[in-house]
């Protein structure tokens, strides 16, 4: 309502506070919702993997691939994850396993890198032939073996990984970590999964 200039100066102008409580409610609700529905501060990454291969169709047909011009060393590096440890194999055969106290049972293959047996859970899993906990696998030794192989085959990047059917996905990720890179040096990052061994 309009006032005369003389009255305007005398009128009691009370300061009006902005009511921000509804706004605060909305903001608080939104922040809570986003925090509860997201993974929080965890950062998501990805690992590249190629399609599983059952069998090389050319090899299955008994046809050898023609090498382009110069002969190239084919490694076909393969890492197998079993209840006993890691098997590492290449085109020349399986890398020899290290014996750990005791003779090898007849007919049973010894893994290239056996499980760590300093933990009771690992020994129990080994005795019962069940999937051992992730910590039982010696991934540090696997990485050192990969470095040795990489030194022999510097151009090779491909690795085939297979596992027993009940091996957890977490172990597979650990193996891919151990074979992919070491202190900034690329090892075998072109992963192809191979199902499955009995």
């Amino acid at each position: 309502m309009a006032q005369k200039p003389s009255e305007r100066s005398r009128s009691a102008m009370e300061p009006v506070d902005l009511d921000i409580v509804p706004y605060m409610d909305i903001i608080f609700s939104l922040v809570s919702y986003i925090l509860f529905t997201s993974t929080g501060l965890a950062e998501i990454g990805v690992i590249n993997v190629n399609a599983p291969r059952y069998q090389d169709p050319l090899l299955a047909a008994g046809i050898e691939q023609q090498e382009p011009q110069e002969e190239k060393k084919q490694l076909n590096l393969t890492v197998g994850i079993t209840h006993k440890g890691f098997f590492i194999a290449g085109v020349g055969g399986v890398l020899g396993g290290t014996e750990q106290g005791g003779e090898q049972k007849s007919g049973e293959a010894t893994p290239t890198i056996p499980l760590k047996t300093d933990d009771a859970a690992c020994r129990d899993a080994l005795a019962r032939n069940i999937p051992p906990p992730v910590s039982c696998y010696d991934t540090a030794k696997l990485t050192s073996e990969m470095i040795k192989i990489k030194n022999e085959f510097p151009d090779e990047t491909r690795i085939f990984i297979y596992a027993q059917p009940d091996i957890p996905y977490e172990v597979l990720v650990k193996v891919m970590d151990a074979t992919r890179q070491y202190k900034g040096r690329n090892l075998f990052y072109d992963v192809i999964l191979v199902p499955e061994i009995a």
Partner: peptide
């Protein structure tokens, strides 16, 4: 998730012409 189940899903995806896989992990 066991390896067998994972490979079943990957194999099925491969049959539907999806052949590049990105495994989501926590960094």
């Amino acid at each position: 998730v066991p390896f067998r189940l994972l490979t079943e899903v990957l194999y099925t995806a491969g049959q539907a012409e999806y052949g590049q896989y990105k495994f989501a992990v926590i960094k």
